[in-house]
Design a protein around this nucleic acid. Structure first.
Length: 501
RNA sequence: GGUCCUGUGGCCGAGUGGCUAGGCAGAGCUCUGCAAAAGCUUCUACAGCGGUUCGAAUCCGCUCGGGACCUCCA
């Protein structure tokens, strides 16, 4: 039973072997907090949350580092390159750090809504200016970066020449050949400062109007985007760590540049396994600002975006994402989300019943075929997760178990059909994967005892009415509760249950 | 233009040489005061054309369609 993950670097599934077991170091590129997160952003953070949880489930001690990019991220739209954070701050008349705090708070709120575990360390770029400057100094000292007008650029050409000989050319991760892309790079500002178009900024000179600025050996300025991840991953995970994750769109140039910088400073490839999640699309197109098709998470949860037919609960979105394999594109549609909503509800109701079911003690199953099948379905949870985190297949198996569970509930299947061991394993695995690994929550979490008491009272009144064949009263109770978003269900054995929407 | 990915039923999606994916929607039946839920049954598939093979949704080729990246990106 061993975990295999797809390594973007080698373009194949590889056996996962930590450098220093049982410890695992995992770095995931976090958000740029200059704006609100959208549905597309949800995918990597949910995907790598599942990986984090699964690694812990396997017994690893994981240090999960996910940064907050709160400075240094360039935005160029034909105008002078400027810091994304500070330009937005001027627009909104906020202090840069005020803006950063606002969107950081919103990001944390969304992560919490999704039931993502907080990372072990969540370092900020602005909190690691010193480390970034030190790293840049070393790259210059080693001859792989040069200063021009108060900015510092990484010499990609030199790196490529020297490290190609060592089997690590620039472009090793994304499969690009440097010579081929030199002609195709688009025009950027300050291009004349660079020796080559493919060189990227490690440090940028800050023009006078730039608010976010730090002292450096090259004058006042701000760090480039790529260097923060190299500096912070090295600081907290060491020169070589196990997993580096992020969206596929970060593979080039961001991760490629990280590899180059870190390799120069640390004399080795920073991460062993590079994992990239695919994009969420909408009508087949990547969700992104430049396509003007983003659905912000707050809009998604509130149902306020024009494209949305209804609000979608965070757990529905999480489940929707888990229904596909993380390396496939996932196409958003109302129909798909509605499907996930209903599916999740059915799964969780069966799960909740199972957890409360006091199974009989019997050493031999009366239905050995079913008994064997259940064990197989449940054991395959591990098999599928070990095959590059195939949550889709795990969920498919869970849905094969749902009719079995519901049939036990409705007594279409006798409780004696399965033996005690099977019940134990079934409950353990369902709980481990639904709650611990997938992080799915029951909606009942926000109920409270008093509300439950009130509902039990109404349920009892309705039961009495039904017994008297007073269907006017029983329907009134049911219909008015339905109008309030509380659904009553008549159970097979005469009992009643409720669910709150 | 370069590099790479992809095309599965009404929708979303697993899959990878032979064995039911799964979910949602649709249809029928059972249960039921009615409804809902649930259970059972069921209908729609592998873009097209060739090739390899005893056998192809899966491998190869071509054609057509969709997408990502090529220094903002999750």
């Amino acid at each position: 039973m061993s975990l295999k993950v797809y390594n973007s670097l080698t373009r194949q599934k590889e056996l996962f072997e930590p450098i220093n077991p049982p410890y695992v170091g995992m770095y995931v590129c976090g958000p740029t907090v200059s704006g609100e997160s959208h549905l597309g952003h949800a995918r990597p953070f949910i995907t790598f949350d599942i990986l984090y949880r699964y690694l812990m489930h396997l017994g690893y001690k994981v240090r999960y580092v996910r940064n907050i990019t709160d400075a240094g991220h360039f935005e160029e739209e034909g105008r002078a390159a400027e810091d994304k954070i500070s330009s937005k701050a001027v627009l909104e008349k906020l202090e840069p750090m005020e803006l950063v705090q606002k969107y950081t708070n919103m990001f944390h709120w969304a992560m919490n809504q999704f039931n993502n575990l907080p990372p072990s360390i969540e370092p900020t770029a602005t909190g690691h200016i010193v480390e970034q400057i030190e790293m840049i100094k070393q790259i210059i000292a080693d001859g792989y970066a040069y200063e021009a007008n108060g900015s510092v650029y990484f010499d990609v050409e030199k790196f490529n020449t020297d490290f190609s000989a060592k089997g690590q050319p620039y472009g090793i991760l994304s499969g690009r050949v440097l010579d081929e892309q030199i002609e195709s790079t688009r025009e950027l500002d300050n291009q004349e400062e660079k020796r080559n178009k493919s060189d990227f900024a490690l440090w940028k000179n800050a023009p006078p109007e730039h608010i976010m600025r730090w002292q450096s050996p090259w004058g006042e300025g701000f760090p480039g985007w790529h260097i923060e991840c190299s500096a912070m991953s090295t600081k907290y995970l060491g020169k070589a760590f196990d997993i580096h994750g992020g969206g596929m769109d970060l593979q080039f140039p961001h991760h490629e540049c990280e590899i180059a910088q870190s390799t120069v400073c640390n004399h080795q490839m920073p991460a062993r396994y590079w994992m990239h999640n695919n994009m969420i699309t909408i009508n087949g197109k990547k969700m992104g600002k430049s396509y003007n098709n983003v659905i912000k998470l707050s809009e998604l949860f509130a149902g306020t975006h024009p494209i949305l037919a209804q609000p979608y609960a965070p757990s529905t979105v999480r489940f929707f994402i888990l229904q596909s394999q993380y390396r496939s594109t996932l196409d958003f549609s109302n129909e798909a989300l509605q499907g996930s909503e209903k599916a999740l509800k059915r799964l969780m109701e069966a799960f909740d019943w199972l957890m409360n079911f006091e199974h009989p003690i019997n050493n031999s199953a009366t239905n050995t075929d079913l008994n064997t099948k259940v064990i197989q379905l449940v054991n395959d949870f591990d098999t599928f997760m070990n095959d590059d985190i195939n949550t889709a297949k795990v969920i498919a198996n869970m849905f094969e178990l749902v009719p079995v569970i519901n049939s036990l509930k409705d007594k279409h299947i006798e409780a004696s059909a399965l033996d005690s061991n099977t019940y134990t394993v079934l409950k353990q695995q369902m709980k481990a994967f639904i709650v611990d690994v997938f992080g799915l929550q029951t909606n009942k979490a926000d109920n409270n005892d008093k509300l439950d008491g009130v509902l039990q009272l109404l349920i009892n009144m309705r039961k009495d009415a039904k017994q008297r064949k007073d269907f006017v009263t029983s329907d009134k109770i049911r219909n008015e509760l339905t109008a309030l978003g509380i659904q009553l269900k008549d159970e097979k054995d005469g009992g009643m249950s409720y669910t709150i929407q």
